[in-house]
């Protein structure tokens, strides 16, 4: 029995590694490494600069305020949310519709969960590079008060692991949705990511939203994750920017994250199993819609 478990773990790890490598190849091998590096830098920097210029136009060139740092850092960490959600759910569409390999993955002895996590991992890695680039750009050129020595690393890593766990669970839920839908699969992940961008107060304090939108925002896990990342990177002073989230201490933010991530993982498991069962029953695993 012990041999069987260790063998399954070994095989699972091998499948995960292969899926991650495949995801990385799909993402990056269309260009030589230099072009890919430039591509990876331009997008996050341009997205950050949009916010920077919006801010500078209004403040007539004055950066370096607390609100500016709040907006900038929130936007930088949000790259993870879009990247991971899209990466995991898009793997279903890509493999089913484009490469037509999803049915073969189901025929192989690997677990689809592990495969999806591996494919998402490649996006996670690319997102991590983009986040690092955006934060470095902000610290070096835009006076965002990010000091390597002042970052609360234990809090940052604890929050990062919990938050990413939650986002991965959400990605699995979206992958389940993609399994049983023919159209708009791309739109579903973008809609969810867009809703989080707006309702979680990623680029503004939650307080400026109407009350009904605030009520939705405070039940969404990424709200707490992004806030935790801001506090880890900028210090606890940044908690004063939002009165709604300022009520939460650093440790209570982590507790909320822990609870919501555990809940999301459980729900994502149930949902994906149900979606998978439905897809098998209705013959959707190998459908090709050309949509």
């Amino acid at each position: 029995m012990a041999v069987s478990v260790s063998r399954r773990v070994r095989e699972g790890f091998g499948a995960f590694r292969t899926a991650t490598r495949l995801g990385w190849q799909i993402e990056s091998n269309w260009a030589d490494p230099l072009v890919f590096a430039i591509y990876s830098i331009i997008k996050p920097v341009a997205a950050s600069l949009i916010l920077v210029f919006m801010y500078l136009v209004i403040t007539r060139g004055k950066a370096g305020t607390e609100l500016f740092a709040y907006i900038y850092v929130g936007n930088a960490f949000y790259i993870f949310v879009g990247g991971v959600l899209f990466g995991i759910s898009w793997a279903i569409i890509d493999d089913r519709e484009h490469y037509e390999m999803l049915k073969y993955i189901y025929l192989s002895p690997i677990r689809i969960y592990i495969y999806l996590l591996g494919r998402g991992m490649a996006r996670l890695f690319i997102s991590a590079i983009s986040v690092a680039i955006a934060l470095s750009f902000g610290a070096l050129l835009l006076k965002v008060p990010l000091r390597i020595t002042a970052i609360d690393y234990p809090y940052l890593f604890a929050g990062l692991i919990l938050g990413l766990g939650g986002v991965i669970a959400l990605g699995i839920i979206l992958a389940g949705v993609c399994l049983i839908t023919a159209r708009h699969s791309w739109g579903i992940s973008e809609s969810v990511a867009g809703a989080f961008y707006l309702l979680c107060g990623v680029v503004f304090p939650l307080d400026v939203l109407p009350r009904w939108a605030q009520a939705i925002g405070v039940v969404l896990p990424p709200t707490y994750w992004i806030e935790a990342m801001r506090r880890a990177a900028l210090g606890e002073e940044v908690a004063g920017v939002s009165q709604v989230l300022g009520r939460f201490s650093n440790s209570s933010l982590l507790l909320v994250l822990l609870g919501t991530t555990a809940g999301l993982m459980f729900i994502s498991h149930l949902f994906f199993r149900a979606a998978e069962g439905r897809a098998r029953r209705r013959g959707l695993i190998d459908q090709r819609t050309d949509y």
Binding site: L67, G187, G194, Y197
Partner: peptide
């Protein structure tokens, strides 16, 4: 979908 992103940018200006 685009309205979500656009609304987020509106709220940034409102915050400022």
């Amino acid at each position: 979908l685009p309205l979500l992103g656009t609304s987020a940018y509106v709220f940034i200006y409102k915050a400022m």
